[in-house]
Amino acid sequence: MKLDINGVVRDIDAPPDMPLLWVIRDLAGLPGTKFGCGMAQCGACTVHLDGQPVRSCVLPVSAVGARKVTTIEGISSDGSHPVQRAWVEADVVQCGYCQSGQIMTAVALLEKRPDPTDADIDAGMSGIVCRCGTYNRVREAIHLASRLKRGNR
């Protein structure tokens, strides 16, 4: 099957029920997306399908179809996406394992809610578990990214 991942159309030789996460990491060689729980309960594996966040660990690759896959490697080539810049500035990362899922979800959140409230952030990010408990810094970084995106800083 053909799969558009980060703007590159690839020929993927995989059984139809292989989780998209396996394809991304093992077949496409993009290890930025992490395996956490394997049952859509932690959010570490979050990627975008046509801009919508999905848990790639529970999505059979055959369900992707013509939708475009975007991984953490695809939102910028050099870490310059406003959310990534905000993440660095707010020093969000502790162990870092959940950060790919956090950032992909934050990117999707800001696309639809450019100036989110704390409540918007809490509601939108609650499915991404951080074992280090960096939630306050995640919230701070999303507010900062919002300002960066809007040129308000």
Partner: peptide, 19 residues
């Protein structure tokens, strides 16, 4: 909610039993 839509985790079909 934005960022946590139902379809973020619930796909277009039941996952295979092997999951």
């Amino acid at each position: 909610n934005i960022g946590a839509e139902c379809t973020t985790c619930h796909g277009p079909a039941n996952p295979p039993s092997a999951f």
